[in-house]
Amino acid sequence: MADSKKPRPAFAPWDRRELPGMFDVEETARRVGHYKWVEMRLFEALGGWVATVPELDVKLRLGTHCYKHAWHADLWNKRLPELREMNTERLTVPPNDEFVTFMDAITEPEGPDQTLEKLVGVYRVLIPHKIAAYTYHLNNTSTITDAPTMRSLRFVLNDEFEDWRDGEMLIQSLITDEADVQRAATHQARCEGLIVKAGGIAGPGSIGSTDVAVPEEVTA
């Protein structure tokens, strides 16, 4: 029988988690506050749209997805005090004015004939950007100190992937001719342009930076 008193390493040989992470507590709280803000705006809009969409399958999906984003907002709301932010409202803000403009464009379509625009804005622009920012956070935070955020990110990402697939399939089923293709593309381009200006759901640096330092050419 194994000796239960025999010392073992605290990190098992297969546990490769490391201490360093890209974000300190303050930066993590800043990001989480932006996440909560965007999840709230999203669940409110999906809820509001339910009554404006005549397609029964879309109506029911929006009602279902509405709850998931509200739950994400709640996860982020509960994480903020754990990140030393007791006044959660203080950080429940958009990253910048450009992002507000972007969300206004996303939630602008209202008429019963604008289901395609509603879905394209959310499922072809916003949700892919959320998946990107959440993935960046998940892959760059400290796997030891920020494990609670990572756990929530994994739950949230799981929902985002599932909902993105639902939304994308609804969009594909609504696009039946060239005019629809153009409508979808036009709205997508407009929204994409606006989120580029905002820098993503957490502002510039939402998914890090791809700039690399290139040594200056040396001349004699």
């Binding site: 409110e44 999906l46 809820g47």
Partner: peptide, 27 residues
């Protein structure tokens, strides 16, 4: 329930609602 998520902002005023109420409506 969806419109209640949209129609009211979070806040303490007469025409506002608590955050948790909106979460209930989303549920």
């Amino acid at each position: 329930a969806g419109r209640t998520c949209w129609d009211f902002e979070v806040g303490p005023h007469f025409d506002e609602v608590p955050f948790a109420l909106k979460l209930d409506m989303a549920r």
